[in-house]
């Protein structure tokens, strides 16, 4: 008993030290490496406009990925995000037909996102259903509604000032989308790492029962997370629709998997409880750089998906293999 000191220090390891040994640092090194390799393999890579174009590969997905990261850290998942984009985009297209202007379209996009998120949240938190099945269901349902509305048609004719969201530049090569991406990243960083709400998200993800027993309103927190994910899907829908200037029901098809991959690559545990926003930001850049770099080398998109898939499994498998090999 004499060897334990009466005084307990706050920390043994400084936050900086902890950060240096983290997943995010490793990932950042990977991103830098890819950047360097890319700049050597293609003469077109180190061009400001090309790099600016590159950011469009990930900005919309990353906006959703931040909200998805919180959701996955809290132990849930939303596979319906891409379908929410489709439905929100379809709703905006329909709103154009009845003559709504740009402000109205934005409200419609955000509103549909929120409603879809609320629907998912209701089914998961109020009815106690597993989110993976619920959102596989709503994934079909939301996109299905787009198909019912549009069939094999498309909505076009968006107002010209609507194009700013997906095609506008704020300053030189800095696009509006990129600025929006940066702001959203900052907001989610603060929510997750600097607020009581973020602390509750970690607590719930690590042990939902323990969190509930500690007086956290678990269902309420999860409901808000579904709302946020829906809202971000609405934001992404506005940007994407504006960028494409058209809506088909197949819009953003398969994005949910890329978004989940981005989140997991960013170091968020798919089992919940751990992960960070900086990790997701770096992962977004890594995926953007890989896609862009391979694109410059004329590698077809489907082959990139092999790289992404291998990356997804590899980043989780390699540390575990290393652990196994050591013991």
């Amino acid at each position: 008993m004499t060897d334990t000191t009466r005084f307990i220090p706050d920390r043994l390891q400084s936050p900086l030290e902890r950060r240096l040994k983290s997943w995010e640092t490793l990932l950042l090194a990977v991103a830098v490496a890819i950047f360097i390799v890319n700049s050597f393999t293609s003469p077109y890579f180190l061009n400001a406009w090309n790099l600016s174009d590159m950011t469009f590969n990930f900005t919309e997905k990353a906006m959703i990925a931040f909200a998805m990261a919180l959701l996955i850290i809290a132990g849930e998942i939303d596979l319906s995000v891409a379908s929410i984009i489709a439905l929100a985009s379809t709703a905006m297209g329909a709103a154009v037909q009845i003559g709504l202007g740009t402000p109205g379209l934005v409200l419609v996009g955000l509103g549909v996102g929120l409603i879809c998120g609320a629907f998912n949240g209701f089914l998961v938190t109020k009815m106690g259903l597993p989110s993976i099945v619920v959102t596989i269901g709503t994934m079909s349902l939301f996109r299905g509604i787009s198909y019912i509305v549009l069939g094999d048609q498309a909505y076009r004719g968006y107002p010209s000032d609507f194009s700013f969201f997906g095609q506008g530049y704020v300053f030189w090569v800095i696009s509006f989308e990129f600025v929006l991406f940066a702001i959203i990243a900052l907001v989610y960083f603060v929510i997750l790492h600097k607020t009581n709400f973020g602390r509750a998200v970690y607590a719930i993800g690590n042990n939902p029962v323990g969190a509930e027993f500690s007086g956290i309103r678990v269902a309420r927190v999860k409901f808000i997370l579904f709302l946020l994910t829906g809202l971000m899907s609405g934001v992404a829908a506005i940007c994407l629709t504006s960028r494409l200037a058209s809506t088909r029901p197949s819009i953003a098809f398969g994005w949910e998997l890329e978004i989940v991959t981005m989140v997991v690559l960013g170091g968020v545990s798919i089992l919940g409880g751990s992960g960070s926003i900086p990790g997701v930001v770096i992962a977004a850049f890594v995926m953007g750089l890989v896609t862009f770099g391979l694109g410059l080398l004329n590698v077809p998109g489907i082959v990139m998906s092999i790289v992404i898939g291998a990356l997804l499994i590899g980043v989780i498998a390699l540390p575990r293999l290393w652990e196994k090999w050591r013991t």
Binding site: L257, L312, A317
Partner: peptide
């Protein structure tokens, strides 16, 4: 991958799904 490395099945099969599709292309 699920048994020996204890990687969550949803991650494993999400990954192999894209890898299998890409392999068909190759």
């Amino acid at each position: 991958l699920v048994w020996k490395l204890e990687i969550p099945p949803i991650v494993v099969t999400l990954g192999t799904m894209t890898i299998f599709r890409g392999t068909i292309f190759l």
